[in-house]
């Protein structure tokens, strides 16, 4: 395990912990953003350079800004308010997560690397935009198109959901408008 790997692991776990435990939502969001930035660097170290940059730009940049924006919009900076109706879930949740982690670890411990590291690295071609792009627009073209359509639908859906008139029928709207006039 190299020094980079070690530091990255520690940082990932630390920021992840902040993200799930911090009582302040803004802190949690910032922890998550940091987590994603580190994740991006890790991707690059794993010969996925393009993906790393996308991770940083899209995730740590765009998505996290969205999160923080919504947190601020809804005045939800204080994470946990009110009475927890399910107090037992705190410990049980931790237990289940731990068991899940143990299971995954056990499963992974049996796995063996199929290729020598250098061979695999050569196949990846550094994971540059050029290398990934040819695959993306080749065999995965339809998947890309589908995802594009999905993004469009999601955008429309988000707009519809947040639209202020949502929940009102056209007739009601007409009526209210008429009333104002």
């Amino acid at each position: 395990m190299s020094a980079f790997d070690f530091i990255a692991t520690v940082l990932l776990l630390f920021t992840g912990f902040i993200a799930v435990r911090s009582q302040n939502a803004v802190h949690a969001a910032l922890g998550l953003a940091a987590n994603f930035v580190v994740l991006g660097t890790v991707y690059m170290s794993l010969d996925a350079r393009f993906l790393g940059w996308v991770q940083i730009i899209v995730y740590a940049g765009a998505i996290m800004v969205l999160f923080i924006f919504v947190v601020m919009l809804l005045f939800a900076a204080r994470a946990e308010v009110g009475v927890d109706p399910l107090p037992w879930l705190k410990n049980w949740g931790a237990a289940v997560a731990a068991v899940f982690f143990a299971t995954l670890t056990y499963a992974l411990s049996a796995a063996k690397a199929p290729l020598a590291g250098t061979t695999a690295a050569a196949l990846l071609g550094g994971g540059t935009a050029k290398a990934v792009g040819s695959v993306l627009w080749g065999t995965w073209l339809y998947a890309v198109l589908l995802v594009a359509a999905l993004l469009l639908v999601a955008t429309v859906a988000a707009v519809v959901l947040v639209h202020p008139d949502q929940g009102q029928s056209r007739a009601e709207r007409e009526a209210s408008r008429g009333g104002k006039a």
Binding site: Y43, L46, D47, A48, F50, L51, V54, Q55, V58, Y59, A62, I63, L66, F67, V70, A113, P114, L115, T119, A120, A121, A122, L123, L124, G125, G127, A131, V132, V135, L136, T139, W140, A143, V144, V147, L150, L151, V153, A154, T155, A157, A158, V159, V160, L161, V162
Partner: peptide
């Protein structure tokens, strides 16, 4: 992807990020 030398896995990773963006948009909405 690194272990198997598979660019496809990285491609899928890219798609996952795109999907996550869509999901966040709808979810936050």
């Amino acid at each position: 992807a690194r272990a198997y030398g598979s660019l496809e896995a990285q491609t899928v990773g890219l798609l996952v990020i795109a999907l996550a963006a869509a999901e966040v948009a709808v979810g936050l909405g």
